[in-house]
Nucleic acid binder design. Structure first.
Lengths: 197, 197
DNA sequence: CGGTAGGTATACTGATCTGTGAAGTCAAGC
DNA sequence: GCTTGACTTCACAGATCAGTATACCTACCG
C-alpha cells in the first residue's frame, strides 16, 4: 500500500460525469495509440463531450494525461489487491498475474512505461509513473517478506522479481508474445521455492 | 549475429553526407524527446539541411524513423561485439554492460522500447525493433551456450537475463536510477556462477 | 560540353495541434 | 426566483504538422 505522500500523487481528482467519460475514452486511446498520437479533438469527438468541457474540467491535455495515469493506477491497484486477497497461499504470484491480465485487452505492454518513454523529463505525470512503480516494488517487498521468511534478502528478491516483470511486460508490448512473460513467471516460482541463497 | 533475413531488416540504407547529418541529428532528437514530439522542420533546422533534401533522400518521416532504429542497432551492435571481444573471460557480462553504456548519454532508457510504445502496430519500423530484440536474445543464447557449458538450459537462462536487462533499462529510463540495473547485473553474475539447476 | 546527382532557398498546401472567447441551455439548491 | 455549476455550440486564434513545387546552384564525370 502506498504511503500518504505517494497516495496524493497517485489519487485521481474527483470528476463530474462528463469529465469521467472524457477520461475513460482518453485512457483507451492513450494506451492504444500513444499520448502524442491522440489529440484533444479526437478525445472530444470519441467521447461525445465538448472540447470546451474538457478544458473547463482538466485545464490542459497534460492534466488529462496525468489523470489518465492516476486513474489507471487506482483502478488497477484495487483489482490487484482483490486478486492477492483471493489467493492467500500464492500472493506474490497473484501480484505478478495482476500485471499480466491488466495489460491484456490491448496488448500494448505497460501503460506507465510507454507513457514514460514519450513524456518530457519535467512532465508532472512522470511523478505518477515513478510513484506507481515504487508502490508496486514496495508491495512485492511486503509480500516476499511476509510470505517467504526463509528468503534472506527480501528486498533483493523483490527487485529481481520486478525486473523480470518489467522486462516481460515491455517485451510483450513489442511483439505481443507471452513467451518471455511466462518464462519470467517460471523463474519467480523457482526463486520463491528455492532455499535461501 | 543476426541471420540474413534479420540483417536485411536491420541494415540502414547507404546515405549521402547530408542525409547522414540528418539521420544523426534526428537520432539524438528522437531518442531524447520521442518520435512524435520531433517534427521534420525541427530536424531540418537543427541539422542545417533543407527539408527538401530530407524528403529527396528518405521519402517520408516514417522512413527516417526506420533508418534511425536501423542505424542505432548497427552502431550499437559493432560496439557491443568489440566489447565482447575485449573481455573473452566474461562475455555475457560484456553484452550486458554494452546495453547500459549505450543508453548513457541521455538516460532515456531503451530507444527500441520507447519507439515501440509510440508506434502504431503496423508501422514498418516495428520489424526493426523486433529483429533487434531477437538478435540480442540470440546472442545471449550463443554466449551462455559457449561459455557456460555447465548450465543445463541455456535458452532459459539467456531469456531470464534478457528479462532482467530489459526491465532494468526500462526502469532507468523512468527514474534515471541505476540501482535496479546494478541489481540485475548482480543477479546475472549469481546465475552464471551457480551450478546447474 | 553536357548531363546528372546532391544540394540550396523559399514559399506554399491543407490538415491538425492545443487552447480560448462569447453566448446560451438546463437542472438543482438556497 | 435567482444563483450556481455543468455543459453545449461554434467560431477562432496561432502554431505546428507532414509533405510538395519551383527554381537555382555546383561539382563531378564521360
Amino acid at each position: 500500500m502506498p504511503d500518504s505522500a505517494e497516495e496524493a500523487i497517485l489519487t485521481p481528482p474527483t470528476l463530474t460525469p462528463r469529465a469521467q467519460r472524457i477520461l475513460d475514452v482518453a485512457s483507451e486511446l492513450f494506451y492504444r495509440r500513444g499520448l502524442h498520437a491522440v489529440g484533444v479533438d479526437t478525445i472530444s469527438a470519441e467521447s461525445g463531450v465538448t472540447k470546451r468541457t474538457l478544458y473547463d474540467r482538466f485545464g490542459s491535455k497534460d492534466a488529462v494525461i496525468e489523470a489518465y495515469l492516476q486513474q489507471r493506477h487506482t483502478v488497477w491497484w484495487a483489482r490487484m489487491e482483490r486478486r492477492i486477497a483471493a489467493q492467500p497461499d500464492a500472493r506474490v504470484l497473484a501480484l505478478w498475474d495482476a500485471h499480466i491480465q491488466d495489460a491484456e485487452p490491448f496488448d500494448r505492454g505497460c501503460a506507465f512505461l510507454n507513457a514514460g518513454g514519450e513524456l518530457p523529463v519535467d512532465h508532472p505525470a512522470l511523478r505518477v509513473i515513478r510513484a506507481h512503480k515504487a508502490a508496486v516494488r514496495d508491495r512485492f517487498v511486503d509480500l516476499v517478506t511476509a510470505d517467504h521468511p526463509d528468503i534472506a534478502d527480501p528486498d533483493r528478491t523483490a527487485e529481481v522479481i520486478v525486473l523480470l516483470l518489467e522486462g516481460g511486460m515491455a517485451h510483450r508490448g513489442i511483439d505481443g508474445d507471452d513467451h518471455l512473460l511466462r518464462r519470467g513467471r517460471d523463474e519467480v516460482e523457482r526463486i520463491l521455492s528455492a532455499a535461501p541463497a
